[in-house]
Design a protein around this nucleic acid. Structure first.
Lengths: 207, 207
DNA sequence: GCGATGACCATACATAGTGTTCAGTCATGA
DNA sequence: TCATGACTGAACACTATGTATGGTCATCGC
């Protein structure tokens, strides 16, 4: 039915990719809100009609970029969320590794993630996407906590899900501030150390 | 020079107040971004020209509302930031009182505060305002921590300012989620307990 | 080769919002 | 009675969004 000239099948339309690439590049230096569709398509070398053929709007394109970025995010946090296959790792070290991987993810995708953090409040689609992501991380963290007798002993009598959600959102905020270059979190070492410190204090205060 | 008909002096122009009141009311149920100047002036019963005479735009009006709301905020946190005049209060109890006062402040001014949290990322003026506020709270918290030998013993070797900033931003985020009705923080008891728990764990882990 | 198909583009359009301008109204105070 | 200053209403230029139209061009079946 379609007139294809390259790969035999399952080839994501090239224009679509070009738009997403250009959009991601622009977001590295520009605000989502300040970007117009005109600028995006100019950078992508694509017509206005094509853009609206592939995406319902700016938001929809951003949503796609976010989905791709956080897809990698799940793997990033895995060292801590899925306790080592064989050797029982020190939870503190695993946690630090997860936090560090999160920092890498955020800095690599700073533009896209900054954009959704600033936009999910005013767009239903983006809100659902982001709250869903946070809920996923929260659930993973809560599960990991509940599997840890030491942590559970400390948290006795408190709402584990709420604590897990707090720590998740603390991460979101600090990573975001780092991506915005707000001190003192623009210093990656400070960011990771501080986040790690609060998580550890909350979960394993015995130290 | 001006033709006044009421109070003798220092009378803030009535139209300006009407705009601010209407704006605050609208923000209780609507998003800042989704509100147009047309709607605001319609609700206020004021002409477009008058609006732009008193405010440079939507953002400037919001900034004014935020300044007024957080003016009260400084007092709200005072029980903890400025240790009691005479009797040495239990820092944990004082902290809880401060957190609870913060919750009251946020719920009273939910619309305005939600608006700035969602907008400071894309407006230089609002950014400066909000980051300044957070810096103020952070400084107060850091000072309070440094005055407390018990807390300082625990935090030995870590960046106190960074920890104070983390806890400040954690508060910002959790209060915001509560104002948005995001579970589990839409439950005020959970909000206050969890925030209190993380602060205490981080600062006074001895229990 | 020939016509159909579908991807793509340029242009134009309707709609909506922003911020400015300007002529005009109306109460007050001199 | 006139001048002043607060305020309005309407129009304007500009920018952005999302849609609709007509046309180009490569490819495919035949």
């Amino acid at each position: 039915m379609s007139a294809r000239r390259d790969e035999p099948a399952a080839n994501a339309p090239e224009l679509r990719e070009r738009v997403l690439d250009a959009f991601r590049d622009l977001l590295r230096e520009r605000t989502f809100e300040s970007l117009s569709v005109a600028e995006i398509i100019a950078a992508a070398g694509v017509s206005r009609a094509s853009f609206y053929f592939y995406f319902a709007g700016k938001q929809a394109a951003l949503a796609e970029l976010v989905r791709r970025a956080v897809g990698a995010g799940h793997q990033a946090a895995q060292p801590w969320t899925e306790p080592g296959t064989a050797a029982p790792v020190d939870p503190r070290a695993a946690l630090r590794a997860g936090i560090d991987a999160g920092a890498t993810l955020w800095l690599d995708n700073a533009g896209v993630l900054r954009a959704i953090v600033e936009s999910w409040g005013s767009d239903p689609q983006l809100r659902e996407l982001w709250l869903g992501q946070m809920a996923t991380f929260t659930a993973a963290a809560a599960e990991r906590i509940q599997a840890d007798p030491e942590a559970m002993r400390r948290l006795a009598g408190t709402d584990v899900t709420a604590v897990a959600a707090s720590l998740t959102w603390l991460g979101e905020r600090l990573y975001y501030l780092a991506a915005c270059g707000v001190p003192p979190f623009d210093d990656r070492a400070v960011l990771v150390d501080t986040l790690h410190h609060v998580w550890i204090s909350t979960l394993y205060p015995g130290g």
